[in-house]
Amino acid sequence: MKVRMYNVGCGDCFCLKDRKGSLLVDFGTSNNRIDGRPRSDIFDVIISDFTTISHKSFLLTNFHLDHISGLLYMLKKYKGSNDFNTIYLPDVFREPSMSRTLTLLLLSDLLKNTYLPSRQISLYAFVEALLKQPQHIEFLKRGDVFEGKYQALWPDCNVIEEETQAALKHILSLKKIGSEEKTEAQNRGTYQEALTLLESFAEKLRQIVCDTLKTNAFALECEFRDLREKPEIAELIQALEQENIHLRQFKNKISLVFQSKNDGEMNVLFTGDIPQKYMNMIAANYDDTLPLYEHYWCVKVPNHGIQADYFDFTDCTPENMLISNGIYYADNKKQTKAYRTSAQYAGLFYINDTHMYCSSSDCCDGYRNGCTCKECDVISPQYYKDI
């Protein structure tokens, strides 16, 4: 087993390779430039490396920019030259009821306050790419085995359904729309109309991904453009922004987490952007079906190692830990702080005899005039590091 960790700045891109094949895990970045180079140049180098792999599948942990932008770039620019055996997605598509969850993911994209979210990296952009370059898609939920050697630990569809219902109930309870006061019944009616419109479109996206609906990208874009201009949608978005409701984190709740299927010397654990709450549930084996192993050869820490999603992996005795931190260019110091790698992961204060790999130490709170990790490798300014 070999893991190649690519340098994509504040993003994720890995390749798990053995004699039987390769699994690419995420491909994206939040940065426009990485180590002074345009991100398109970095993408081109990584894609060139991908072309040397004959049998490969792709796993997307979630639909955030820093996980999917490179994949969409590749599907658009290198049409037909980088086909995958399978693209694995979090299971938020298989059942019709999941259109409600997709509604929240779609609404999260609309909250970016752009005129046409299809031009942004989003759930919609992924579906649009599939229409232009179809791929074999499979969905993963807790307990599913894939590639014959990995097993999904998250998402749990029942938990996601509960979270979806709670989020929708909260949205319907909003009372203000701009400066205009309305009765609770009036608000619920307006927001319900908006959610119904969004759910209808989300169901169409679900069917396209499931390959049960045939359409074309232009027709879908026209429909999305019309949807965005609906007054009910605009009113709902205005209310959510006014109440400072961030649905962006909902994408983390569906994030894929997986480990090696069989307990052995080369166990891997990849955690995507899983929130701390759910990582704690996984570690506690909340449903008594899938315990974590006592030892891992390689662990990818959640969500760039930020403090909000910090998880203590001491009991997992990892030999190697991967932190795709990079530098996050935010508009304010508070937001920048929130995206820095927690000092709790730093080797001096963490797990003895664990080797730390990170894309860049510049955005790490454990970095003080030099890395504080006892055993560490920083990829930057190189393109990748093999573990």
Rank of each mutant, 00 (worst) to 15 (best):
F146N: 00
G366T: 02
R94I: 09
D315H: 12
A166I: 13
A194E: 05
L172W: 00
N352D: 14
P38H: 09
N216Y: 08
R19M: 10
D309R: 03
F27Y: 07
K374G: 10
C222W: 13
Q335I: 15
G305W: 03
I237F: 01
W154F: 13
T354F: 00
L240E: 06
C316G: 02
V92A: 03
L174I: 14
C373S: 14
F201I: 12
T190R: 14
I254V: 15
C222F: 09
V8W: 04
S380N: 08
Y191Q: 09
T101F: 04
M98K: 02
E294R: 11
L140T: 04
I379V: 15
H295Q: 15
F201L: 09
L89V: 08
T61C: 00
I254T: 07
S359K: 05
F311W: 08
L256S: 06
S30A: 14
L292S: 02
I68L: 15
C13L: 03
A166H: 08
E147Q: 12
Y88G: 05
K182L: 12
S380M: 08
V8H: 00
N320L: 08
T314H: 07
R94L: 10
Y191T: 05
D83R: 12
L172N: 11
Q344K: 10
S200N: 12
D12H: 02
P275L: 05
C364N: 06
L75Y: 06
N113V: 01
Y329E: 12
Y328L: 10
K169F: 03
I46S: 05
R37E: 13
G28Q: 01
N352F: 02
Y191E: 07
V257S: 02
K300I: 00
E181G: 03
S54K: 14
K141V: 07
F139G: 07
S122V: 06
D91V: 00
D386R: 09
L240V: 01
T101H: 04
Y383R: 06
A346V: 11
N85M: 06
C316Q: 10
V8M: 01
V378E: 10
D287S: 11
I208Y: 08
G70T: 04
E294K: 12
S255T: 07
R142I: 01
I323P: 01
E161H: 13
K333Y: 10
I351G: 00
K149L: 05
L174P: 03
F43L: 02
L290K: 10
S48N: 14
Q382L: 13
V301I: 15
Y124N: 05
H304K: 08
F218K: 15
S54D: 11
C316E: 08
C157H: 09
E203N: 12
S173V: 06
T51G: 04
K77E: 11
L153S: 07
C298S: 11
L205P: 03
H67M: 08
I323F: 13
S69K: 01
E184Q: 15
G326Y: 09
V25L: 03
V209C: 00
L130A: 01
G143D: 10
G272L: 06
Q344Y: 11
H67K: 08
K337H: 13
N62I: 03
I254H: 05
L168C: 08
I121D: 03
E221Y: 09
E294T: 11
D109Y: 04
Q207V: 04
C10N: 14
N280S: 15
